[in-house]
Nucleic acid binder design. Structure first.
Lengths: 172, 172
DNA sequence: TTAGCTGCAAAACGTTTGCTTCCCG
DNA sequence: CGGGAAGCAAACGTTTTGCAGCTAA
């Protein structure tokens, strides 16, 4: 059922300081705020990882049973269109989401556990821009994802069995 | 139906010189060569873009009607496992494939036209490895995609309307 | 009041798979 | 000959959608 979790970004980042963060953004963009949207917005505000829709649904349900998964799908889609959410495909066949309001960064995905580690890198940023320029383009956006494995110190104990790969590239 | 096309790599690259290129690789890895596999291998050898399964199926059908799409799916999966093909997710909800035998490279997607430009960059390669190491990981694979726009010399005429984005993140 | 949101269940989508028959080696 | 490959259609898991009723503004 895919219950992996991400590595939260460092505490210094003040991950999810405000439970109304996303709701505020919604209002700013003129969205009608229903109970369900507020609920989902809250779940998103509190997330410090990259949950997929089913995980969002689970977390929302835990706070209030008056939601359906269809609404979660509809809402993340809407928020993505509004630029409030970013959709990622880390493999595993499900889209995963994170708020766009905490700065540009990249991801390293642990192919064995599915964990996602965030990082940023000035050097890469500059390089990307330079490459685009070299090709005659203005850089609008870019995606850098690293897939890595923790070097195994010894034997390949149970947990490290090669992640089953389905449509994506890694899964849990 | 998403009928975008890629920009073939530069002619200097001698794109698809040998229609038996992929078949040879298959044999090298000890695969049983059936008529269908030969057919699909040929289509792949001749491709200079990044076709999805349906497109491969279409091209194969045009050469010989004795193929089913299930076989195309099974074959690309097999070839990917054998390292002969690389699967990409450029958005749009379908996996797209290209042969691995023409060197490691990355993609720049023209957000206005959907065209894909290939490039490689030693510096980036090294940087990716270094970042992974810094985070305590062995780099298994990585993905770098740039999204860019041709700088408009003067006015921003109609053609530059933001490319419609569907389930993937970018599309044409 | 009413445009637009929600829930439900069914459909759609790309992809995989069980089973039988067929064919390569 | 025997093991694996192909075809078909049904199954899969994720996401979208039609429709009837409900709700925020």
């Amino acid at each position: 059922m895919d219950t992996r979790t991400d590595t939260p970004r460092p505490a210094t980042d003040a991950a999810a300081p405000d439970p109304l963060r996303i709701e505020r953004l919604c209002v700013e963009r003129g969205l009608k705020m229903t109970g369900q949207r507020r609920l989902i917005a809250r779940v998103l505000s509190e997330a410090v990882d990259h949950p997929d829709v089913e995980e969002l649904y689970r977390r929302a349900l835990a706070l209030d049973a008056r939601v359906s998964i269809a609404t979660v799908y509809r809402t993340v889609r809407l928020l993505e269109e509004k630029g409030i959410l970013e959709r990622h495909d880390f493999g595993g066949g499900r889209a995963r989401y994170e708020a766009t309001d905490h700065g540009h960064h990249y991801h390293l995905i642990d192919v064995d556990s599915g964990k996602v580690i965030e990082f940023s890198d000035e050097q890469h940023e500059a390089l990307a821009k330079a490459i685009a320029a070299r090709l005659g383009y203005e850089l609008i956006g870019h995606r850098l994802e690293l897939f890595g494995r923790r070097p195994a110190p010894e034997s390949d104990k149970g947990g490290a069995r090669r992640a089953a790969r389905r449509r994506g590239g890694e899964a849990a």
